[in-house]
Amino acid sequence: MRIYDLATAEQDFIAEVAARSHQDVRTCYQCGNCTAGCPYTFVYDYSVSQIMRLIQLGQQETVLRSKSIWLCGSCQSCTTRCPNRIDVAKIMDVCRHMARERGYATEREVKLFADSFLRSVERHGRAFELGLMVDYVLHSGKVFTDLDLAPTALARRKLPFQPHPIVGRDQVERIFQRFRQGGAHA
């Protein structure tokens, strides 16, 4: 097991998580309510309460390289249950953003899918499912992912071959432009 040096807690990391999430991570007293309610614990490498603890200990590398922050589904169970009113899901979100900024993607496919999704939204103003699938397959090389769902989805007309352009597509595009210029957090 890794040994954490308590003295090298990265205070800047703690402060950045706190500032960007607007949450006071010191108020977590490790009751475990977030972990108890989290539906993704079975795939996590660190449970939510452990992520909270590692943040308190300033263990930047461990947190930002963890699988858990990518696998979090933002269902908000942790936030709802927290007795100290910490928005834990928000903290998971912030950690994911910070990991991305540092070029970490421990769950590569999750990141690639998010990228494909955003590209699709930028181009069409909304998600174009088939285009998104092709984009994701091209980037990830995972040709057979969820292929078994295709017949059902096609039969129910959930996979149109043409994108549905929306009104105000240019405005959505401008959001992306503004983001790239503005230097806002990813």
């Binding site: 490790q30 009751c31 475990g32 309510n33 977030c34 972990t35 108890a36 309610g37 989290c38 614990t41 079975f42 660190y46 449970s47 309460s49 452990q50 169970s77 249950r81 007795p83």
Partner: peptide
């Protein structure tokens, strides 16, 4: 060591789901 996030019935029993923070899991 942990809190309980959910209780739901199953048969004539109650399933209690909580966390064990010492084991780091549910």
């Amino acid at each position: 060591r942990g809190r309980v996030a959910m209780i739901y019935p199953k048969g004539d029993q109650l399933i209690v789901r909580g966390a064990d923070t010492l084991a780091g899991t549910q």
